[in-house]
Computed example of a mutant assay.
Amino acid sequence: EVNTDVEDGPLNPIWFEGRIQKLDFLVDGEEVVLWMASNITERHDMEAKLRELSDTDQLTGLFNRRRLERDLISHYKAAQEQFIPTSIVAFDLDNLKTINDTLGHYVGDEVIMAIGHICRAGLNGDAIACRFGGDEFVVALPNVELEQAMVFADLLHERCEAHFNRFFAKSLASIIGVSIGIAEILATDTSYEMALKRADDALYQAKRGGKNRTMVG
């Protein structure tokens, strides 16, 4: 007979901490230990939340530079040891200084927050987007080669333009753009910083080349 009153159990994981202590007496001639289990779910969840906050940019909700660097170290090792490609997309906002100077930093912050929304909505899998600093952002795309990263950059341009045109005044949307630089971690790279620098250099080539475009490094 099936007991239909029995619940299926907790909806979320429960975490326990186990401790083992050897006792100084024998039971039936055998050494024994005392095993104690403590429910540490609340502490575990709090620690996970603190780790998340330490890795998150508060304005955009994206990851911060600290988290990016940690992930890129892992992706670099995967590229070198397992030949798993990773592309890096670096981009920043065009004419943000003009927006800040003419309309105020509050409006500038709204534009930066919009980038956070666009990135969160457009990423999947192991890809992460980070606010690198100021108005510069970096997206790490594991398992993505350069040609696929260029497709991603095109989509990023399209999504930014559509979002700006939809949510900002025409006079503001007309001057906002994103300049993008792309690079792939290569077998000849001695660190992930080499690929990141190529992407950053390509970004500034896009700036010098007229803004609101993509360059490959």
Rank of each mutant, 00 (worst) to 15 (best):
T4R: 11
D5Q: 09
V6A: 13
L11T: 10
L11P: 04
I14K: 10
W15G: 01
F16W: 14
E17A: 15
G18Q: 15
I20L: 10
I20A: 09
Q21A: 04
L23I: 14
F25C: 02
L26Y: 15
E31C: 05
E31S: 15
V33A: 13
L34M: 07
W35S: 04
A37K: 04
N39A: 15
T41P: 04
R43N: 06
R43G: 04
H44C: 03
M46I: 09
K49D: 13
L50G: 11
Q58T: 12
L59D: 13
G61I: 12
N64M: 14
N64S: 08
R65L: 13
L68M: 15
E69Q: 05
D71W: 11
S74P: 07
A78W: 08
E81G: 03
E81C: 08
Q82N: 13
F83L: 12
F83I: 07
P85E: 09
T86E: 01
S87I: 02
I88G: 00
V89R: 00
V89M: 09
V89I: 11
A90H: 11
D94Y: 10
L96Q: 02
K97D: 01
T98N: 15
T98E: 08
I99E: 00
G104E: 03
G108I: 04
V111E: 02
A114K: 03
G116N: 02
H117Q: 06
I118G: 02
A121Q: 06
G125C: 14
D126G: 05
C130K: 01
C130A: 14
E136F: 11
E136C: 02
E136K: 06
F137D: 01
A140G: 14
N143L: 09
V144P: 00
Q148V: 04
A149P: 07
A149Q: 03
M150Q: 12
F152V: 06
A153E: 06
D154R: 12
L155Y: 14
L156M: 14
L156P: 02
H157Q: 07
E158V: 10
F164T: 04
R166L: 12
R166V: 08
F167E: 10
K170D: 09
S171T: 13
V178E: 07
V178A: 10
I180Y: 00
G181W: 00
A183R: 00
E184H: 06
E184Q: 13
I185K: 00
L186M: 07
A187D: 10
S191Q: 06
E193W: 03
R198H: 01
Q205W: 08
A206V: 07
K207D: 06
K207T: 06
R208K: 11
R208Y: 07
K211L: 08
R213G: 05
M215R: 00
